[in-house]
Design a protein around this nucleic acid. Structure first.
Length: 573
RNA sequence: GGGCCCGUGGCCUAGCCUGGAUACGGCACCGGCCUUCUAAGCCGGGGGUCGGGGGUUCAAAUCCCCCCGGGUCCGCCA
């Protein structure tokens, strides 16, 4: 618990001041590798050793003597070990307070105070020219998990899906729709993907058609600038909305919903792109080169120059992106984008331009690609694995597993399997640190046997079952934790109470994988407790009652934690 | 060619920002545990030059430099 940690830190700081008045920086509280070494420790003696020119061990012993004269709440013992100063908690009172708090706060355990800060979080933003593949999935899963975490710790979060409707790829689709008939029987995004792939093939074989694409793009942009409701606008809108319909369905199946869909074309229509270009022209960093105006960003250490408009006067993605971000950053306290690592240079340029326009810049989470064992994915070549097929295959396998275990009624199986399948997919992606490249392998993504989320959901199911049985037993209320607790109990209680701090770190550092890894930790600690400490079979009523409270608290933490990862708990499996 | 990212036991992965106690887990492997709360589990065991080499430090997976391998970016594409 954060209060206990802060108190310990304060006391250490005071005592250190007694032997050394200078600045020693923040006191860092660490966790010893084993319970036998205590619950918290500090390495302050090592840092003081140099300054005071005395061995760390001696300093540690001296500090321990001083610390022992203080009475620190929930701390029963302080020892000097190898230069470290180790603190031992009084688990009887610590567990009583902590478990009681978790149960009292329930689904709000871990929730932060309202920060009165608005965050706009943009994620997924896949081009509406085909179905989402697992690469988009990494983006969406990281983004959605983060949205849930940030909201829970007290931010007002609005999610954006930035719809790229003005790119070449969308013009290809619009062109393709007049050449090929769309398959109305297929899911819309898949049908649109087919059109896109076929049209690209057609263009490859007939390069002279390329001019058509350019013409369509110019026509669309002209219509937007003139705010016409011409047929070309309708064609683009139809195509984009049609694909988006399918994309939204997929996202919905993954428990992901966006608050706002922002269309790129909106910024051409409302004149903001023209305005941005005009303002950038006035910065004095513009040069003319190859008959086109470019923004020189060498002041920002960027070699690449930003082309402001094409030779034919039409706008480019980058300037429209600047307009979007300018608008977005003005509407929030913090802007967060989830983007593929291939956008790193783009973002540098974007941020430089935003600074020139005196705007805040977004914080960006970059994630590396998910590739296939046979190489990288390609939307254009149709070489990718869609989220839809992963979802479907995961459910198929999960149904088999649930049936095999035989704990669910026939009519429950599908629903349970769906939760397990989605959990496995979301978890296996979110648990990996985003800067690590991933290789998609079916066996790994959908391994229900041991790895990942099923273990967490299973621990939760065990909690549910135990509590169910306990209700039938009518256990008397007794004073909690008035016995010598086992190591497994202590470790579990301590782990559960870390939840709020984990959320804070995970949210503030924009790293949902920290929460994901913690959840597995909770499950392991619970399983160890479950395997070593009798609960319902415990004869001592006081211990039985206390252990049930630990189970209840575990159930709450798992539910809250998985919910923030967009994963549901089946309750039985 | 230059910039950025990754490289942790056979495989996957945490820790790296903010340097410290035997490098967290999982898979696979070996040995125990289901007349006992769901064995998707528990207990124990073997397995590591933290890509390589220098450096800084009392102390380096962690900080600095060089190198190797992989990815990615360097469009009047998005």
């Amino acid at each position: 618990m954060i209060e206990v940690e802060n108190t310990i830190k304060e006391v250490i700081y005071r005592k250190v001041q007694e032997i050394y008045k200078g600045d020693v920086g923040d006191i860092k509280l660490e966790e010893p590798p084993s319970l036998k070494l205590g619950d918290y420790s500090t390495n302050i003696s090592f840092r003081l050793a140099r300054i005071l020119k005395r061995p760390p061990k001696v300093i540690a012993e001296e500090l321990v003597e001083k610390l022992k004269s203080e009475s620190i709440p929930y701390v029963v013992d302080i020892r000097a070990v190898n230069g470290y100063i180790n603190f031992f908690l009084d688990y009887n009172s610590y567990a009583k307070l902590g478990i009681d708090r978790i149960i009292k706060e329930g689904e709000n355990f871990g929730r932060g105070r309202d920060r009165d800060k608005k965050i706009i979080l943009e994620h997924t933003s896949a081009n509406p020219n085909g179905p989402l593949h697992i690469g988009h999935g990494r983006n969406a899963i990281i983004g959605d998990s983060l949205k849930r975490i940030l909201e829970f710790i007290g931010y007002d979060v609005e999610t954006h899906y930035y719809v790229n409707d003005m790119g070449r790829q969308e013009a290809v689709v619009v062109f393709g729709l007049e050449k090929f008939e769309i398959d109305r029987d297929k899911k819309p995004d898949h049908a649109m993907g087919e059109i896109y792939i076929k049209t690209n093939k057609l263009l490859e074989e007939n390069p002279q058609l390329e001019e058509e694409i350019g013409r369509i793009m110019r026509e669309y942009e002209r219509a937007l600038e003139n705010r016409e409701d011409s047929p070309i606008v309708e064609r683009f809108q139809w195509a984009v909305n049609y694909a988006l319909e399918g994309i939204k369905e997929t996202l919905n199946n993954m428990n992901i919903q966006h608050d706002t869909f922002v269309w790129e074309s909106n910024y051409v229509r409302n004149g903001m792109v023209r305005d941005v270009i005009k303002r950038l022209m006035e910065t004095g960093n513009v040069i003319e080169e190859d008959n086109v105006y470019k923004l020189d960003l060498s002041d920002f250490g960027i070699e690449k120059k930003l082309v402001l408009t094409r030779g034919d006067g039409t706008t480019l993605y980058s300037t429209r992106d600047i307009a979007y971000h300018l608008d977005k950053m003005a509407r929030c306290d913090r802007g967060v984008d989830v983007l593929g690592a291939d956008h790193k240079l783009t973002v540098q340029i974007l941020n430089a331009a935003l600074k020139l326009l005196n705007s805040k810049t977004p914080e960006v989470i970059f994630y590396e690609f998910i590739s296939l064992p046979e190489g990288s994915m390609s939307t254009r070549r149709g070489r990718f694995i869609t989220l839809d097929e992963v979802l479907k295959e995961a459910e198929r396998r999960a149904i088999g597993e649930v049936e095999r275990r035989g704990v669910a009624r026939e009519e429950e199986i599908e629903e349970i399997a769906r939760k397990i399948a989605l959990g496995a997919i979301r978890y296996n992606i979110v648990r990996v640190s985003p800067e690590k490249p991933m290789v998609f392998k079916w066996e790994e993504a959908l391994d229900f046997e041991k790895v990942g989320c099923p273990v967490i959901q299973y621990a939760h199911a065990r909690c549910c079952r135990i509590l169910e049985h306990a209700r039938e037993m009518k256990v008397e209320d007794r004073e909690l934790f008035n016995y010598e607790m086992t190591d497994q109990e202590k470790i579990l209680v301590k782990t559960l109470l870390k939840f709020p701090k984990i959320l804070e770190i995970s949210g503030e550092s924009l790293k949902p994988h920290i929460l994901a890894n913690y959840m597995l930790d909770v499950a392991h600690k619970f399983n160890s407790f479950y395997g070593n400490c009798p609960i319902l079979k415990e004869k001592d009523n006081s211990i039985l009652h206390s252990r049930l409270k630990i189970v209840e608290a575990t159930k709450i933490v798992i539910e809250n934690g998985l919910r923030l990862l967009g994963i549901e708990c089946p309750g039985k499996m």
